[in-house]
Amino acid sequence: MQSSSDRGRGRGLCVAGQYVENEDTIYQPRGEIEAMVATLNREQWDQTMVDLILINPNVYFSLLPPSPPPQVPNSPNWCTCGKCRPMPTAEESVCCGMRPETCTSESQLFSLLCLTETVLAIAAAARNDFLGNPLHLANDRNRELRCCSYRQFILWQYGRISAGLRGGIPSCCVWKIRTKFPDVNDRYVGFLPHRFIN
């Protein structure tokens, strides 16, 4: 008969096709783990890898060879990340300062905060509520999302929004935002000095 503490625990963890009942056997020193792995035959090794990847899919991605991030051809000489494009003004000619593999425009946090429509819609609703602006349906949804994305970037990087900070958005990030929320006529306002981002 099972004790009450054993009920509902299932079959334990599957290691190399074998279910391990005692959790203490899972947490072993590295040397013992290496010795156990060395005894696995090819079939056991393959099954263990499949089980491990099913439990933690990040293992699969860690096994893939790194792919070089795409670079913008003819990126400007002021760009270090390789993803910036020429900008019309000196104020807009800013790079994130990172290497190609760590470019800010490729970070998961940038994607979450500045490119996720749900996050941007909530940020816009909160801003409208704070300012007492009525909610409205934008004629140009992508323009609204771009503007909100610029504000999100500034808040994320600088902690506040004030006139003139939009020039501090790196070109790589501006173009990532423009690519995600394009203007149908490919016309963008760009940086306007001393203008509060609306």
Rank of each mutant, 00 (worst) to 15 (best):
M1H: 02
V50G: 00
E91V: 04
L64D: 06
G132M: 02
R30H: 08
D24T: 06
P88Y: 07
V72Y: 01
L192E: 02
L137H: 14
D24N: 12
Q44W: 01
R85A: 01
V15G: 08
C14I: 05
F61W: 12
G12A: 13
N77H: 08
V184H: 15
R11C: 10
Y19K: 14
R146M: 03
E144K: 03
N128H: 07
A126N: 15
S62Y: 13
N133P: 05
R160H: 11
E21M: 11
L135T: 10
E106A: 13
V59F: 13
M36T: 14
R160Y: 07
D129I: 12
V50L: 07
Q2E: 11
I169W: 02
M1Q: 02
L120M: 05
Y158C: 09
L54K: 14
Q2S: 10
L192D: 03
V119P: 01
S75W: 01
C173V: 04
Y150V: 02
I177E: 04
R151C: 09
G164C: 09
T179S: 12
N142K: 07
L13M: 07
V37K: 14
I55F: 06
A121I: 07
C148V: 13
L52R: 12
S111T: 11
T25H: 12
P170K: 02
I169H: 03
E106S: 13
T89E: 08
N198E: 09
S5E: 10
V20M: 08
N185M: 14
P69K: 01
S93Q: 05
M98T: 02
S107T: 01
R187M: 13
T89I: 04
A121M: 10
I177H: 03
S67H: 14
L113D: 05
F110L: 09
Y19P: 04
D129Q: 15
K83G: 00
W156Q: 06
D24F: 09
I55V: 10
S67Y: 11
M36S: 11
R178F: 04
R9L: 14
V50N: 06
N185C: 10
Q157F: 05
H136G: 11
L155I: 10
I169Q: 03
Y188Q: 01
R141M: 11
N185T: 10
R30P: 03
G168E: 13
G167S: 15
R7Q: 09
S5P: 02
S105I: 09
L64T: 11
A124F: 11
P29L: 05
F110V: 01
C96V: 02
G31D: 13
V20E: 09
W156K: 00
T118S: 15
R99S: 09
E34Y: 12
T25M: 10
S3K: 07
Y60G: 02
E117G: 11
M1E: 03
C14V: 06
I55L: 09
S149P: 04
H136S: 14
Q71M: 08
A126M: 12
P182M: 10
W156E: 04
P182Y: 11
Y27F: 15
F110N: 02
V59G: 11
C14W: 05
A16K: 08
R127V: 06
I53A: 00
Q71A: 03
V37H: 14
T89C: 10
R187T: 06
L137Q: 14
I197R: 08
T48G: 12
A123F: 08
C79D: 00
